[in-house]
């Protein structure tokens, strides 16, 4: 098992400053600052409707923030989601958004889009360059499927995968764009404890590939096991940010979100928690679906 707090923090990958998002009179995200450094796993928690997904959408160009600025590795992000992906930020969605009628492999191949160049002419003329690029894409896609454990289902339709595997496929598809930062929006929602554990391992493995991860999650055990740093969003505002212990101990967080103190400190009692996790169902794991991007 991978140890949780290997804080090899390096350069700043993501630098969001003063991000505000208003929908008419509703301010869904208010003046949020957040940094993610290379080699880090950062958690973003908060009650339903706190604005976490909206914040993600601001980071990925799906929404253009009303105020504020988002920089990726020093450059301001373009306001189009496909350009953000090309720049190096990839994401998954809270409500799985796979290409349902495409095969598992094709889904990952679509993820390769920004890292390949072949246009229409190349496809029509089918020169040696086309076949080479296509073969390389397939090979890379198969590697990723292998990485998330779906290689044997490459030819299945995405819609026919069980739920947990659909989430894994979304991660593989996002990784296919060779991101420097991966945003995961509730990656374990609807999963059983075993699947959640596996996802934890997967996130560590992604970090070990040198990809920084920013993850929204309701499963506290998952977050506190995984994250080097956790930020709490309540009603659009960042309440607190810090390492797991700080956040768990904070009274405002407990009052606003956790309800009761999280039992045990993370890290040293991890083994015990694994067993505990097996027994208890993830209570917060099925959030409302009022907003699907």
């Amino acid at each position: 098992m991978t140890t949780d707090t290997t804080t090899v923090t390096g350069t700043t990958v993501l630098d969001a400053r003063g991000v505000t998002m208003r929908f008419g009179g509703l301010t869904a995200v208010r003046n949020v600052d957040l940094q993610v450094n290379s080699g880090e796993i950062v958690g973003l928690i908060g009650p339903n409707g706190a604005g976490k997904t909206t914040f993600f959408n601001c980071l990925t160009g799906l929404y253009i923030p009303t105020e504020g600025e988002v920089r990726y590795k020093g450059t301001v992000l373009p306001p189009k989601s496909f350009k953000v992906t090309a720049a190096g930020i990839a994401r998954t969605f809270q409500n799985i958004r796979l290409f349902a009628n495409m095969t598992v492999l094709e889904n990952v191949l679509v993820g390769r889009h920004t890292r390949t160049k072949e246009g229409l002419w190349s496809a029509l003329l089918r020169g040696p360059g086309f076949h080479k690029a296509e073969a390389a894409s397939r090979e890379r896609a198969m590697e990723l499927l292998d990485f998330v454990g779906l290689a044997n289902k490459a030819e299945h339709l995405a819609r026919n995968l069980p739920y947990g595997e659909q989430r894994k496929l979304e991660i593989a598809r996002a990784l296919a764009s060779e991101p420097g930062l991966l945003l995961l929006d509730e990656p374990t929602a609807g999963m059983n404890p075993q699947e959640t554990r596996a996802t934890e391992e997967l996130v560590f493995a992604i970090r070990d590939k040198g990809i920084a991860v920013l993850v929204i999650e309701h499963d506290m055990r998952f977050i506190f096991n995984l994250c080097d740093r956790v930020a709490v969003l309540v009603q659009g505002e960042k309440l607190i940010e810090g390492d797991s212990a700080t956040v768990q101990g904070d009274e405002r967080v407990i009052a606003a979100y956790l309800g009761e103190p999280f039992e045990g400190t993370p890290g040293d009692e991890e083994a015990a928690e694994v067993e505990a996790a097996e027994a208890s169902a993830p209570s917060d794991a099925t959030p409302g679906k009022e907003n699907d991007r």
Binding site: T60, L62, K80, S81, F82, T85, A86, A90, R91, F93, R97, L98, F99, A100, N101, M102, V110, G111, H113, T114, R173, A174, S177, R293
Partner: peptide, 11 residues
């Protein structure tokens, strides 16, 4: 299939 997801995949 899904335009939003397609855009988010860099298309």
């Amino acid at each position: 299939e899904d335009e939003t997801a397609a855009l988010a995949m860099g298309i």
